[in-house]
Design a protein around this nucleic acid. Structure first.
Lengths: 210, 210
DNA sequence: CTCGTTACTTACCGATCGTTCAGTAAAACT
DNA sequence: AGTTTTACTGAACGATCGGTAAGTAACGAG
């Protein structure tokens, strides 16, 4: 066993089958995603990943088919979490403004829960097929929220003097920026963060009338 | 003269001195920044830049000392434009809320005017010394805006139930997201965009009371 | 113990990266 | 014309990249 790394072995002493104990794939993915966010996907070498895992480059290839496979797995996790929001009852039943609030709150929650994974998703540029298909799914999610904004407008809840596409984009701009500055574990809890985001988005920066 | 590219020569037939006419450095920078944004700084090769310029790789090195030099020049332009806002009279005189509105409007204007340059700045990760020093200047700008938010709060213009740091970050999240979706030349003019941003930021998404 | 399966290790491959260098074409100056 | 200065060309450098091949150590099953 070479290297000075921690050695992220499977916590289960064995896998119930023959052979040596394997590295924990989720742990491998965690380290890969962190590195991708630190240095950028392209600038992160498989050698660096292996070093951080305390193993060799080719050992990584035993678990994943290649660098793009790591990216694909990570993006799947982020997209799955986001898409899951839309199928919850709170996103499908009730007045449009309530559903919009529910989805936005859920998005903040997912952002915080899977911070590095969503960070990776939000920084994609779409230069490979994997990135393009992930971006397409992300656009589908954005579009679903955009429809909620339209419905809330139709129901009279939202202002009509600003284009609804602009509103949706500014909304996502605000929410997505969270991955660039939020540090979990501080005094700002995820729940309070979601409250603040929703409140600022709907009521603005001015002091409340009441 | 090899290559099939456009050949971005200096528009001035000569430079008033000896020797051949040179490539226009600003034009070279434009192409470099566009490529950096398309593929990411690391994934953009000097070979690709040369190809887009209709030149050879080594010809680029006659004008710039290296890849990082291109990054440095580009970031200098973006940061200079942003910092310029803060020294204008509108940013230094008057009530804090007015100054805040002025700076936010100016930031939107700079974002649109120097879109690719600011885009590059906003995507930095800070892995080289050049990136780190640019990020420090960007943080200084952010901090100046944060102080304006604090002053506006002290003057009673802004809500006090949300942390001012959170407010500043959400504000910048909204504004900075513009580089990810705004396409100049459409029906949404820069001035209207700035109006919408300021209006949504201060008054929120709800329909106006009046 | 032996055997089969799993999980690696070391060494290496071709390709591409940023960068350099010696030579040369093109313009202005005399 | 010849000279000087500027702007480039083509080829190559060492380093590093993602990925592979062949051999081996570690385990469970019999």
């Amino acid at each position: 066993m070479a290297g000075a790394g921690a050695g992220v072995r499977s916590t289960t002493g064995g896998n119930g089958r023959n052979g040596r104990a394997a590295y924990d794939l989720p742990a491998v993915l965690d380290i890969a995603v962190t590195a991708f966010n630190d240095y950028g996907y392209d600038a992160t070498s498989m050698g660096l990943l292996a070093e951080r895992l305390g193993t060799s480059k080719s050992a990584v290839y035993y678990h994943v088919s290649g660098k793009e496979d790591l990216l694909r797995l990570a993006l799947e996790r982020a997209l799955g979490a986001l898409e899951g929001i839309l199928s919850l009852p709170g996103a499908t039943d009730g007045p449009a403004e309530d559903r919009l609030r529910f989805v936005l709150r859920g998005a903040v929650q997912v952002l915080v829960d899977d911070l590095p994974y969503v960070t990776l998703l939000l920084r994609l540029r779409g230069n490979t097929e994997i990135e393009r298909s992930a971006l397409e799914r992300r656009r589908a999610f954005d579009h679903a929220v955009s429809r909620l904004v339209d419905q809330a407008r139709d129901e009279g809840s939202l202002r009509t003097d600003v284009d609804s596409g602009t509103i949706t984009r500014l909304l996502f701009g605000m929410i997505n920026s969270i991955v660039e500055w939020y540090k979990p574990g501080g005094t700002l809890t995820p729940g309070r963060l979601a409250d603040d985001v929703i409140s600022v988005a709907f009521d603005g920066l001015h002091r409340p009338i009441a």
